[in-house]
Design a binder for these strands. Sequence first.
DNA 1: GTCTATACCTGGATAGAC
DNA 2: GTCTATCCAGGTATAGAC
Lengths: 212, 212
Amino acid sequence: MNDNLPARRGRKSEISRGQILDAAARMLRRQGYGNTTLRAIADVAGIQAGSIYYHFASKDEIMDAVLERGVAAVYEAVHDQLAALPVGTDHLKRIETAVIAHLEALLSHGDYTSASIRTYGEVPAAFQQKAQPLREAYVTLWQELLGAAQRDGAIRADLDTSLLRTLLLGSLNWCVEWYDPSQRPVREVAAQAVDVLFRGVVPAYVPPSLKE
Amino acid sequence: MNDNLPARRGRKSEISRGQILDAAARMLRRQGYGNTTLRAIADVAGIQAGSIYYHFASKDEIMDAVLERGVAAVYEAVHDQLAALPVGTDHLKRIETAVIAHLEALLSHGDYTSASIRTYGEVPAAFQQKAQPLREAYVTLWQELLGAAQRDGAIRADLDTSLLRTLLLGSLNWCVEWYDPSQRPVREVAAQAVDVLFRGVVPAYVPPSLKE
DNA sequence: GTCTATACCTGGATAGAC
DNA sequence: GTCTATCCAGGTATAGAC
């Protein structure tokens, strides 16, 4: 009755499992796939290496779980934020919302997202395939966002939205390499990213008649 | 006298050394630091694992050489292209030149640059420190480029150029994750990146009087 | 300068006590 | 559910022949 964990229904197995995943995500994020050892994970999680196998069948299974959870977190964050907008919200506002959601999921939400972004490229091909559907769904989400905006004239017609998408997401994804929460808030990064994306860096043209 | 390698002065040691580095760069690029083994490097280079130690003292020494060469290549490419511009070239043209040079060095020039970009974050701290000065010099180069442009009003005064720099370079660096030479030429990517950077994605405002 | 052979260590994984 | 002990493969690195 003195159960202070509300819906923790059943076993404490879940707790350990979670700690293992947390530890794995943290190490994966900063050391990559090949440098992350089970012993190190166990150490961070506060258990012995052998104990891991009660929760996971192999190292790969842990990695897989971390990566999957990472992309899922970003996908859901963006999807949900977009869904929460009132119907008829204009395209630029929707894009802005998506950028902020993506960045927040990446930078605040933590190790899982960063780990999945950084290590996806160096993981065995089998894993990449497993994560493929979800990744494609995410790409599609953005593609439709940008495509719809372009069709309605909210963004320039002469741009290749597919290329634009990769450039934009690249810019955001790269933040995991340098972002430091103690320097500036995430929203500030997001704000300038959106600003530059929309308006560009060149000052607006001011007709001579209006100058000074 | 039938020496068909012009200035290959001296030893063939240089050839093997080069092959080892090439192989290492290629594997580092796509597998990361921890997954790249000496046996695999030797295999790709066409020699035996033990033979590597005639040329390098350790695995780390190879990695170090690859990383260093990677950043140096990008730095020099951008630096040289900028230096080749006529004096007095305007700021936007200089920025455009730098973007193109950075991307070309990254995507055409190959494995060294990609490897150094992708694995820098997961390499032991000792290496990061060794490469630090050169990386800082590169950052400074960009910072001065953007700062000068802003001082002269070529780019908006309300932007944080430091943040702008990281967002821009992030967008470009991320290209190593997805760029496929068979899909589109590098220049096309560079062109749109510059275009969006300068003008933004929102169509220019057209006064009602000019419409239709 | 490259080979073969091998030492040594660390990593993933298993077995069985508790 | 976690521990200890251990197996085995594969990694870096060395030694010495050629």
